[in-house]
Design a binder for these strands. Structure first.
Lengths: 197, 197
DNA sequence: CGAACAATTGAATCCTTTCAAAGGGAGTGG
DNA sequence: CCACTCCCTTTGAAAGGATTCAATTGTTCG
């Protein structure tokens, strides 16, 4: 399913989806030919919860297994698969993450925040996969692939992360990366927290 | 209630809210002192639907009347006020709007998209209020107040919009503004659509 | 009327983009 | 198995745009 389209923009929303395995991206194509990636979705994430018609397309970034849920009709009958509150909450959380990401202004902040988010969403320790291309990252955080590439290499040069090929990395200095990202998102890391000077 | 805090970051989420009258903003304060406005909410919009603890603060932009809804406990019992699917959907729609807004890259695109969104959310025709300060706009779309001011004045100079004081405007050339914004959001305007050459 | 704050405008700097090109990895075909 | 090609990534240099610094104007409120 790699690179495959799961649904297209403007399609009626008959289903909603849940990632079982792999990574999915949602895309919006602007009239100037520019592509905006509104989100990346990992196992456990849900997507495709628009009303009426999809406002974005969804594509598989890697080989992916997707759970497709039937929707109830608009009467909100609370049937077994009627977009459970749970799913909506998770979708909202995904959207919020993206919004926070976009709040960063400089290239360095955005890239640092993006890598941190990836590391936190997967396993944080050890090697973290970077399944999407540089172009994907650029279209997601609103930069060019050149700036993305430059910035990632710069972070590696400063030993904040280590690149393991072009599609995997390791966080070497979480604290330094968080500082660069501007906001540590410490409050979301349930349980443990840091103390600053 | 103007400028008042409705709830703070990290507060437990015991309620969720609905705007009856006025305008509300949700804010996130970064460690570098920088402020990010994650959303503006108009009558009919809902906000404060985080899980567990609020990840952002909410403040009144104007005098505002807010409906405060009690939450059910986490058992999801489906009680009368248990974050109805409806509310979550609207919150998700709000978040999505913000994400699309941030997808714009240049100052002109962002300001044009922001003004358009405002005009569409209120009445589109006639004078449209701009209740928030330039600083608010800047912190929302990720620019400085200087660039925001410059760009708005530039749009007015080109007769795309007309400024009526600093806190109200009128859309003079909707088509031109949409073209600047990059993506017309035409598909969301239910029913009518445009044909391009 | 004066003070304080918000908005506008100008000039210089810095950063990102654009333009251009070289290096590297994966897959194909010989 | 190796060579070739294609595409993605990385890097360099120049151009454009947003930010920063600085100052003026306008508005609101006491």
């Amino acid at each position: 399913l790699k690179g495959d389209v799961i649904y297209n923009e403007s399609e009626p929303t008959r289903f909603w989806y849940e990632v079982v395995e792999g990574v999915v991206r949602t895309c919006r194509f602007h009239s100037d030919g520019h592509r905006q990636l509104t989100g990346f979705f990992y196992p456990g994430d849900v997507f495709g919860l628009d009303d009426g018609r999809h406002s974005e397309a969804a594509e598989a970034v890697t080989e992916a297994t997707i759970l497709r849920h039937q929707r109830q009709s608009a009467n909100g009958g609370g049937g077994p698969e009627a977009c459970p509150e749970n799913a909506l909450r998770r979708a909202l959380a995904s959207a919020r993450r993206s919004i926070f990401l976009f709040g960063r202004r400089t290239a360095e902040e955005r890239v640092a925040a993006f890598l941190l988010m990836l590391a936190e969403r997967t396993d944080s320790l050890g090697s973290c996969a970077l399944p999407m291309s540089r172009t994907d990252i650029a279209d997601h955080i609103g930069l060019t692939i050149h700036t993305v590439s430059r910035t990632i290499c710069e972070l590696a040069r400063r030993r904040l992360v280590a690149l393991e090929g072009a599609h995997a990395f390791r966080v070497l200095d979480p604290a330094g990366l968080r500082e660069l990202a501007g906001d540590p998102d410490v409050e979301e890391a349930g349980g443990d927290f840091l103390i600053f000077g």
